[in-house]
Each structure stands twice: as structure tokens, then as C-alpha cells.
Simulated scan of single mutants.
Amino acid sequence: MTSLTAFTVVVALVALERLAELVVSRRNAAWSMRQGGRETGQGHYRFMVVLHSGLLIAMLVEAYVLRRSDVAAELAWSMLALVIAAQVLRWWCITALGRRWNTRVIVVPGLAPVTTGPYRLFSHPNYVAVVIEGVALPLIHGAWITALVFTIVNAGLLTVRIRVENEALAGLPAAGAA
């Protein structure tokens, strides 16, 4: 198997993981809405979907068009390890949030913010996973242009997204409150 074929398989596996996330997200979003949840931040959501889908496509286009053959094996393996670590962190976040995790900003009134799992260590750990993956996944095959452009554009998106989430969570009771 060539390194380009292996890279394509890795990207396809990440795409399948994203589809699994969407299944979980839709189920959880429906639960949140049934509990009286309120969605905010719809304005940036479509852009986020396009950006994240574009990441998967752009890195493959870059890899196939530029056909870099000089990617060091050490770089590829270390970036793959970071991608795996990002997936572990992402699913730890999903597990910690349980039914409240989804890809939208839906807050159920009266439920305190989650402070378990990675959320006891720092705010917005899922976005740490997104940032790591956005750099590491393209660099598995030296798609540095995609990694750079995604990182810059995603930084702007995360600025908006985190502000929207913080504003939505501000009205919730403190953690530990009944």
C-alpha cells in the first residue's frame, strides 16, 4: 500500500467517524429539544459544516495534486498518533456530556454545565481536539497548505463558536446546584 493510499484510508476512517458523530448528535439534539432546549448560534453552523467537510476534501486534493513523496515517516507516524489522541479526547468529551453533546449549541434550561471528564480540566476540550486534528490530519501526508488554511479559518470560527457557547451557558445554574 502506498503512503497516499494509506492516507486516503485514514481520511476515509475519519470521515466515517464524523458520520457516527452526526448520528449521535442528531439523537442527542432531539433529546435536548424534547427537554425544552434552546438552540443558539445557528448563523455560524453551516459555515462550520462546510469548513470541516472542506478539510477532509482539501487535504486529499492537496495530497493527490501535489503528490508529495518526501513526507518523512517520522512526521507521518507522529501526526497519526496526534490524530488518534484527538479522537480519544473527542469521544471522552462526547461521553462526558452524554445526551447533552451535539454539534449544535443547544442548552437545556435548568441543567448545570458539565464539569466531569475533560471538562473538569479545562473549558471547551472538544475544540482542543478539533485544533489538534486540523493540524495533524493533513500533515500525515504533508498537506501543509490545508493544515495552515484550516487552522487560520478555524481560529476565526472558534472565536465565534466559543463566544456563542459561553453566552448560552452563562444563564445556567452553577455546577453542583440543584
Rank of each mutant, 00 (worst) to 15 (best):
I84P: 00
N166I: 01
H141Q: 14
V71N: 07
P113A: 05
Y45N: 10
A175N: 03
G41W: 06
E39Q: 12
L75W: 12
A136W: 08
V135G: 03
N126A: 07
A86C: 09
G110Y: 07
I140Q: 01
M33K: 04
L80V: 05
R100E: 09
L139H: 02
A73D: 11
T8M: 13
R90D: 11
V164Y: 13
N28W: 00
L148M: 12
H124P: 09
E17T: 02
V130M: 08
R104I: 07
I162F: 12
Y119F: 14
L89G: 02
T151D: 03
V23P: 01
A85E: 07
I94E: 07
A155K: 00
A175I: 02
W144P: 09
A143C: 14
I162L: 15
W101D: 05
E167Y: 04
L89M: 08
N28I: 00
M79V: 00
V160S: 12
A175Q: 07
H44T: 13
D70S: 04
W144L: 09
A177Q: 14
H124T: 11
E165I: 04
A175H: 09
T103L: 04
Q35L: 08
A136P: 05
T103E: 00
A58T: 03
F122H: 06
V83L: 12
A136R: 02
R161N: 05
A76H: 02
R99S: 11
W77Q: 01
V105A: 07
V160C: 10
G176F: 14
I132T: 15
T8K: 10
Y127M: 12
V23S: 07
R34Y: 08
H52K: 01
L97G: 03
L55G: 11
N154W: 06
A6S: 13
L4Y: 12
A73Q: 10
L157H: 15
G156Q: 05
A85I: 10
S69T: 14
V149I: 10
L16P: 00
R18C: 08
I140S: 00
A15R: 01
A168S: 04
A15Q: 08
W77P: 06
A30G: 02
